[in-house]
């Protein structure tokens, strides 16, 4: 299996779009080596603004640039964009519908060694609660590229969530990316697994193992968390016996709660959530941490069997 970084997909897309979108600019808060925006800066130095370690100022500077017709991509780590600069994200960008793309990396537990201070497991919950936000959580390198391009082409605030590690390349995610539309990766009639971001590979693995046991498992990938694809969720609620969600994020306020809310209001069915169980992470290798915090195919399978 091939492994690639979603953050590299983001920056490759920026570089590919640069000529087509001359008003696109990129800002960073002194983590350009990590977000990889320095690769863009090297090619387009006049379109790159290193704001120093000033996430709050950076997000509002980006909003100001958008008011003058620029298409700013502002990058830092997820935890800093949403927690440290949460007010600026809310009042400076979401509320006035600023055409700013907040593209963040180092989200989720797979940040690894840096530990809980840098592992953003709350950012989906925070941004979901802001009106006007579009939230994109691509599942692999290629989908990150597609999502970045889709973000640039829509008018309005976008939160683009990316990881640090190398993640499996999933060919089923490739081809197109439509904001607000999920991807049906596998049909199935017993249980639906709904996944987002880089957990897609674990969801596919869980389906494979369950198929060997004779179960028919549907797999739906949510590349957009907001606006969420309600149609696909309700279809799953009606056509299968229950839903298991998996996300590299807290089960508080994330994909699982979004799905559960829609199902509870419209067509109640069992929903079980796999993710960080209201706990801070810790240092370790990405793969060790996915084991430790229970975000693996085997954890999905356990939840599926609880429903069946």
């Amino acid at each position: 299996m091939e492994y690639k970084q979603t953050r590299q997909g983001y920056v490759d897309a920026l570089i590919e779009m640069a000529e087509e979108l001359p008003e696109m600019v990129v800002l960073d808060a002194d983590v350009g080596k990590a977000t990889l925006t320095l690769q863009f800066a090297k090619l387009f130095p006049e379109r790159f603004f290193n704001c120093g370690i000033q996430e709050q100022n950076m997000l509002c500077v980006a909003a100001g640039m958008s008011l003058e017709g620029k298409i700013p991509f502002a990058s830092t780590f997820g935890v800093f964009a949403t927690c440290r600069a949460g007010d600026q994200l809310r009042n400076g960008i979401a509320y006035p519908k600023a055409n700013v793309k907040v593209a963040v990396t180092h989200c989720g537990i797979t940040v690894g060694g840096d530990g809980a201070s840098h592992q953003s497991n709350e950012d989906i919950a925070i941004t979901r609660s802001f009106p006007n936000m579009t939230i994109l959580v691509p599942g692999d390198y290629e989908e990150a590229k597609l999502a970045t391009k889709a973000a640039a082409r829509m008018n309005g605030p976008v939160y683009l969530r990316l990881g640090r590690d190398k993640y499996p390349v999933i060919s089923e995610l490739h081809g197109s990316f439509i904001i607000g539309k999920s991807k049906l990766l596998y049909p199935g009639t017993d249980i639906t697994i709904i996944t987002t971001g880089i957990m897609v590979s674990e969801a596919i693995k869980a389906r494979e193992l369950l198929s060997e046991e004779g179960f028919s498992i549907r797999v739906v990938h949510m590349g957009t968390i907001k606006p969420i694809d309600e149609v696909a969720i309700l279809k799953a609620a009606k056509e299968t016996k229950g839903i298991v969600t998996i996300e590299e994020h807290s089960i508080v306020g994330g994909l699982g709660e979004a799905v559960a809310g829609i199902v509870a209001e419209n067509h109640p069915c069992p929903v079980r959530r796999v993710g960080m169980r209201d706990i801070f992470g810790e240092s370790g290798q990405a793969q060790e941490l996915l084991d430790k915090f229970g975000m693996r195919a085997k954890n999905i399978i356990e939840e599926v069997k609880k429903i069946l």
Binding site: F49, Q56, N57, L59, C60, V61, A62, A63, G64, M65, S66, L67, E68, G69, K70, P72, Q88, G92
Partner: peptide, 11 residues
């Protein structure tokens, strides 16, 4: 204050 900095820099 930060917002106008982004505006002014662009201009």
């Amino acid at each position: 204050f930060s917002t106008i900095l982004g505006m002014a820099l662009t201009a």
